[in-house]
């Protein structure tokens, strides 16, 4: 009987394509997370400010007596958050391109495997594209870029 241990060349290339597809899928998720970080960090800055205001109102201003330099601390935390948000928003286009590009390449490469259906990965790639497009609309619509 003929040994098929090393397999025909086409099959080997297909396995390699699937591996690359999974790598691009992982990269696209990272791209999506970084894209969302820009938006979420911006929201986090606003949230920190809101929490600070609520604390001041709830303690009727006593927080300034209890925690000396409360306002300075609040502002410094907000500044750090704003810097993080700025970094992610500044590079938003790169992260979004990585997410969409990676997801599309992953989708195409995983479709080349006819013997095993990579349904989970394919759905993941589709979701990454959808969420990245939503993030793009939010950033472009909000004047982030």
């Amino acid at each position: 009987m003929r040994s098929l241990q090393t397999g025909p060349g086409g099959l080997g290339l297909r396995l390699f394509a699937v591996r690359l597809g999974k790598i691009f899928s992982n990269l696209s998720v990272v791209g999506l997370v970084c894209s969302l970080c820009g938006i979420l960090a911006f929201a986090a800055t606003a949230m920190i400010f809101l929490v600070g205001l609520i604390i001041i109102v709830m303690t009727v201003g006593l927080i300034f007596a209890m925690v000396p330099g409360f306002f300075d601390k609040l502002m410094s935390v907000m500044q750090v958050s704003a810097e993080i948000s700025t970094f992610f928003l500044k590079n938003f286009s790169y992260f979004a391109a990585l997410a969409i590009g990676g997801a599309v390449v992953s989708f195409l490469l995983l479709l080349t495997d006819k013997s095993v259906r990579h349904t989970g990965r394919l759905v993941l790639s589709g979701l990454v594209i959808v969420f990245t497009l939503i993030a793009i609309f939010v950033v472009v619509g909000g004047g982030g870029r």
Partner: peptide, 29 residues
């Protein structure tokens, strides 16, 4: 039969490309 990726004829080339593309193996399955 099962075909292991590391038994392919150009396994080292495939592994090297995967290693580089996956940012030094971080995103490599």
């Amino acid at each position: 039969f099962s075909l292991l990726e590391l038994r392919l004829p150009l396994w080292w080339l495939y592994a090297l490309i995967s290693f580089v593309v996956s940012v030094f193996g971080i995103f490599n399955p």
